[in-house]
Structures are given as structure tokens and as C-alpha cells.
Design a protein around this nucleic acid. Structure first.
Lengths: 250, 250
DNA sequence: CTCTGCCATCTTGTAGACAGTTTGGTAGCG
DNA sequence: CGCTACCAAACTGTCTACAAGATGGCAGAG
């Protein structure tokens, strides 16, 4: 009765509401990279693609803007958000702040059944890790763990922010980046530490461990992103007379 | 160039877009209490009141739902959110988590000009406090301070969450509650401590002080809210004798 | 050749109408 | 008297049409 947020934004393809279908379509296109950062989101164009009218598409776009996946100025087309290092840091910093708090709250508020479920989840992950070693972080397994912690925190607002908005932003910036070798085992180990602290009711320890875990995830991703970014920048710079991209508005 | 979030949701009465006008109208009605918690938000009714079509009103309502001021089930009217203690705790906990992080970031990233502005703001508040002693917390002055810190954190996402959503939620739950006697001086003092830590670049100290500050604000509000809530409950429960004004706490 | 002003075109913002669903009450039955 | 089935009213979801504003190119002056 408490964490019954019941986010209705995961209508993969069969949403009763057309706006959900359009939203899922756009989110998938953006996260998968088929809609490049900076791309314009024309309402009529998308409406034609999805096969619905402009109304639901308009609502889907406004939802993307609210989530942070797109930006929009009045009387102008919405555009897919453009990532820079500062924006990436923003996402990880907010996530660290909220999820650390959630871990501490979960340690104090989780029921015994939830603690058992958390323990079982990690046991299952541990035994399944051998199959696909490096696909654990940023995959569904990682998400299951954080989902359980957020639910256990009894904080519906934190749940909504992390599941509704931050999840999409993380999916976008992680898209196209390979999983780091060895990060899987390390992440699972950190998950186990956090879970132990939560199950034992050690709130401050859980908070610290969760903060460290997310910071490690951030640092690992940032290193990879900087490599790719500098490589892309030099490659872009090498093409001397490439057509200059449209200047970004101030 | 960084924190240029430019939230376009403060169209008090003269928004170029009708959706902004409808949104401002509804937000004012909800925060002021003229729209009671649980009240139904009929699109056609509101459209008639504001004098616009259903389209902008629909968009405004969806924005309220995204902010957390209202909830909506499919094919049903949106309703003004109903406050309970757990929801209030959620708001304050998330605010504490994000703004503490923002204070630490501000201590590391603020420019000298921003630090000076922060110092000047508190000096001005300090000299203006004598006029209206108890109106400082939860007023515009308090908000100016937190706004400056959030801007200085260079975290556009934290700024958007706190200014865009949490501000409205706080305004809603604070509505109708008087300012606590003596809280003004205390809050200003805590602001001064936080500002000193930020100006000196002491990130961890700023983080701790901001967390303590927000927790104090939460506790003060919660005490008042519980009084009112138990009073209303007992008054509702025992209509005959309203003499038993026992202030019981958990 | 470069800059300025204008115009065709596209895009968003808004209004109104229609269809499907939920709601609340009412009549009828047990 | 309580319960069920049904029906009308209201509401949201959606579509189409129209109006206002922005974009980008083109012609003409300097």
C-alpha cells in the first residue's frame, strides 16, 4: 500500500493508451541510438511513423522532456538531449544521493520477507554469473537489485525519480558502451556487501556502501566515455572540412 | 552556460502558452488549498474556468501528475494528491539527499563571484530579519538561499528536481501551516554556517550542515503537522466533546 | 561577393467533435 | 431488506482542422 507507484510507462508495444505506445517507441529509438542526440522530434513525422494522431505523440514528447531525455523550446521542435560530461556527472551524482538515502532507509524499514528476498536475489545472481560474466552490471540483474532496495526504502518519491527518470537517462548514456571486463564480479560483490548491511539493519553502513558502489560505477563508465569521446573528437577534428554542425543555442 | 535550465513553468498569469497559464492556475489553486486533497480535476470543468480548450488543460494536468501534485489512473479524472506522513517524509528525505549533495558540489565548484553573492545574500537577510522575525523560513528568502546553492552545484538535474517538483510539493504541504516561533533566527544561523562552509570550500562540512538543516526543518514541520492531524482526527472522531485536546505522539 | 529583407514552407499551439470507458444511480429480483 | 443487472450521464482518449510562429532559402541592394 506504500510503494504502489505502479509506473504505467512501460507499455512496450501493447499499451492501451496510444500515448504510452508512442512514448515507448520514442524512448526505444532514443536509447538505442537510432535517434541521435540533437535530432529533431517532429510531431507529425512521429505520428506518421507510429500510426497515430498528433495528440498522443505530443503527450509522449512532453513526457520525454519531463524525463530529461529531450529538451524543447516554445514553438520549436523538441530535440533529443545532447550528452556532455557535466550532464553525465549530474545523473550519477543525483543517483548516488538518492539511492544512498534509500539504502539507509531500506535497512531500517524493510520487512523480514523483503530482506529474505534480497538475499535470495543475490544468491541467484551469484550462481547465474558464471554463464555471462560481463553482462551483469547495467543489465536487468543490476536493475533488479536497485529496484528491490528502492522499494524497501518506502520512499515513493525516490522510487519514482530513480525508476521513472534516472533509469531512462542511464540507459541512454550507457547505450553503445560495452560492459567493462571484471566489473560484473566486482559489482556483484558490492551488491552482496550492501545487501548484508541492509539485512543486518546497519543503515549508515548501507548508505556508505551504496554511495561507493554507484561512484565506482560512475568512474568506470566515465573512463570509458572519455576514451570514446576523445577518440571521436580527434576523428571529427581530423576530417578537416567536414560540414560544421549547427551551433547550439545559448 | 551550465545551469541554464530556464524552467518555463512560472507563467504566473501571462504565459504565452495557454498550457502554462492553466498549469499556473491549477498549481495556485492546489497549493492555496482551494482545491482540497482528493478533489477531482475535470478537464472540461477546468477548461471552462480558465477559458481555454481542453488541450492545454490536459497538458497542464499531466504536468501536475509528473510533478507529483496529482495522481491519475487511465480513463479517470486526475485527483489532487492526498498527504500522509509517509509522503511528507519522502519529500523531505529526497530533498535532504539531493541538497546535501548539491551543497558539497557547490563548495567545490562555485566561482568566487557566486561565493560573494552567497555571502551578500545572507548579510542582507540578516539585516532584514528584524522586520518580520518569523516569516523567514519557507518564505522567499529561504528559497533564495537554496536556489543559489543549487545553482552553484552545477548539477542541472538536481536543480530541476528541487526547483521543478520538490518546490511545489513543499509549498503544498506547508500551505496553511504557520511559521514556527524562533525558527527564523535558527534557520538563518544554519544558513550562515552552511554558507561559510561552502565559501571555505569545505565540501563534507557543507554536506553535513545542509543535511542537518533540512532535517531540522522537517522535524519542526512534522511536529506541527502531527498536532494538526491528531487534532483534526479527534475532532472528526468525537464531534460531541472537543475539549480533549491531547497531543499524543507516536 | 556579402549582407539584408522578404516570402514560401513547415512546425507547433489550439479548438472543437466523436468514440470508448467509467461512474453512479435505479429498477427489478431474491 | 439486500443484491444484481442495467442504463444514462459524464469523463477521458483520440482525431481532424485551423491559426500563429519559426525556419530556411532566395532575390536584390550595396
Amino acid at each position: 500500500m506504500t510503494v504502489n507507484v505502479d509506473n504505467s510507462s512501460d507499455a512496450t508495444e501493447k499499451g492501451a493508451l496510444l500515448a504510452d505506445r508512442a512514448h515507448a517507441h520514442l524512448r526505444e529509438q532514443i536509447i538505442s541510438g537510432r535517434l541521435a542526440p540533437g535530432a529533431r522530434l517532429s510531431e507529425v513525422e512521429i505520428a506518421r511513423q507510429v500510426g497515430v494522431s498528433r495528440g498522443p505523440v505530443r503527450e509522449a514528447i512532453r513526457r520525454l522532456v519531463a524525463s530529461g531525455l529531450a529538451t524543447q523550446a516554445p514553438n520549436q521542435s523538441a530535440r533529443v538531449i545532447e550528452l556532455d560530461e557535466q550532464r553525465i556527472l549530474s545523473v550519477y551524482d543525483v543517483r548516488e544521493a538518492i539511492e544512498s538515502m534509500a539504502a539507509a532507509c531500506a535497512a531500517e524499514r524493510m520487512t523480514e520477507a523483503e530482506r529474505t528476498a534480497l538475499d535470495d536475489l543475490l544468491t541467484a545472481h551469484s550462481s547465474a554469473l558464471g554463464d555471462v560474466p560481463d553482462s551483469y552490471p547495467s543489465g536487468p540483474g543490476d536493475w533488479d537489485f536497485h529496484h528491490l532496495v528502492l522499494t524497501g526504502s518506502r520512499n515513493s518519491l525516490a522510487y519514482r525519480i530513480c525508476v521513472g527518470d534516472l533509469r531512462d537517462l542511464l540507459a541512454l548514456l550507457r547505450a553503445g558502451h560495452r560492459n567493462i571486463r571484471g566489473r560484473g564480479e566486482r559489482a556483484l560483490l558490492e551488491h552482496r556487501w550492501i545487501a548484508n548491511a541492509i539485512i543486518a539493519g546497519q543503515a549508515d553502513l548501507a548508505r556508505t556502501l551504496m554511495a561507493t558502489h554507484i561512484r565506482a560505477s560512475r568512474d568506470g563508465f566515465l573512463r570509458q566515455w572519455r576514451e570514446r569521446n576523445t577518440a571521436a573528437a580527434s576523428g571529427r577534428q581530423a576530417a578537416a572540412s567536414d560540414k560544421n554542425r549547427n551551433r547550439k543555442e545559448k
